[in-house]
Design a protein around this nucleic acid. Structure first.
Lengths: 232, 232
DNA sequence: GTCAACAAAAATATTTACATTTTATAAATT
DNA sequence: AATTTATAAAATGTAAATATTTTTGTTGAC
């Protein structure tokens, strides 16, 4: 039986609109397209070599994800970026991810444990490794995402996982936009190990406590970074 | 200061795509377009007298809201309808609405109280009134929505309100699709009064307990209805 | 005769190209 | 300075062309 996943971006892009959706999404989350920036059709057409139709469909879909805003007759905008939003997104992520974790841990079977261990190990190897360039950071994002996803993967609620995934991605966007080098500033690695241990011990209370702290720390670092930027 | 609302559908529709979005959304939530139904462009074109471009944009946006599914190169589908989804949506709504209520009640000021009282009163008048036709039921939906929204309106988190609103609308869809005449089967009215009292007493614990029960009862009625339909 | 494989044909979805409408910008006028 | 008017830029919508999927019909093997 194939378990449904929260993310729809599995497999190759069947249509141009789908491709546009993924490209735009990545560029918005990564910050290549700046918050509040106007998404002019002409600019995007030349950037991606995709016609206006598929682009508009992709932006409409992203509007449903709250990564893009629709402005009446005045086009589309990359979702803005505020300390207030960072706080709200962090709090919401805390709530849904703790819940998803609480549902996942008691249910997780052998395959789940293996996946958790594997993704942790890959992340650990990267964190303790040498290079810290731009590509290493984006690789870390990928592995971090995989580990967190593995932890909640046994949660049976597709809707909860979807919501968690959405909030995770928004949180990730804030992390990347504020250029919080979490790897350097905090002992993320220890937090991840605590998560791993709690999960394998099936200690739901502990895992939830750790994940809440983990998310809260990131949120605070992000808000700090935003305020520093604003001062300048 | 204008407080932001969770629902973007305020004011007149500026564009055709926006109009298509609202029409489609209403028809999906109301059940006029059946769950799992194929949304053929040609059919929709004649139904709404709107071109394929705006229609596709509207459906893409609805896909972001999880009210429509995108099928590769094979068009769009109205989101399906399962007992499993009803359960997950109900549970998620319980979580976010209780949280939103918990944040709203302590903050709510005089204007908030007035709005809660007003919307409760309108709902009460309708519930204890005579007619129970189709139009009365849809009027009840409107007033019920207004009351629940009023209760959480003082919650400062736009993201939490947005998520609550989304889950509320999905839950509403299930309620309407399963034709649960909640008004008749349970003493909804008493539950609403308890909510009102707890809110005005600023009794967060009580309000959360009541809202959870209230939502759970609806969920169970919906699931019951779905299972009855499936038996046939 | 039944079934599978294949090949048109029809239906449908998707995309592009273009026409229209609206908004933003800049110059000119009061 | 504020307002109007002309111009340019941009967004939106329409209609036609392209590509894909689904259906239908045909053939041939068993």
């Amino acid at each position: 039986m194939k378990r449904p996943t929260a993310d729809s971006a599995t497999g190759p892009a069947k249509t141009t609109a789908e491709r546009a959706y993924r490209l735009l999404r990545e560029d918005i989350v990564s910050g290549a397209l700046a918050p509040g920036q106007k998404l002019k059709i002409e600019m995007l057409r030349s950037r991606y070599d995709i016609g206006s139709g598929p682009l508009r469909e992709a932006m409409s879909r992203l509007a449903g994800d709250h990564l893009v805003e629709i402005l009446g007759q005045r086009g589309f905008l990359v979702a803005p970026f505020t300390a207030q939003d960072a706080r709200e997104i962090g709090d919401l992520r805390k709530m849904v991810e703790a819940e998803a974790l609480g549902q996942s841990i008691p249910i997780g079977d052998g395959a789940w444990e293996e996946r958790v261990i594997t993704t942790f190990h890959r992340l650990e190897r990267q964190e303790t490794g040498p290079a810290q360039g731009v590509e290493a950071l984006s690789e870390w994002e990928r592995l971090n995402h995989a580990f967190h996803e593995a932890l909640v993967a046994a949660c049976p609620s597709v809707w909860l996982l979807r919501t968690r995934d959405s909030m995770f991605k928004h949180h990730e966007r804030y992390r990347r936009l504020s250029r919080v080098r979490t790897v350097l500033t905090r002992d993320i690695h220890t937090e991840h190990r605590e998560l791993l241990d709690a999960a394998l011990d099936k200690d739901v209370e502990m895992a939830q406590r750790v994940i809440r702290l983990h998310i809260e720390s990131t949120t605070q670092a992000v808000i700090q970074a935003i305020e520093n930027l604003t001062d300048t």
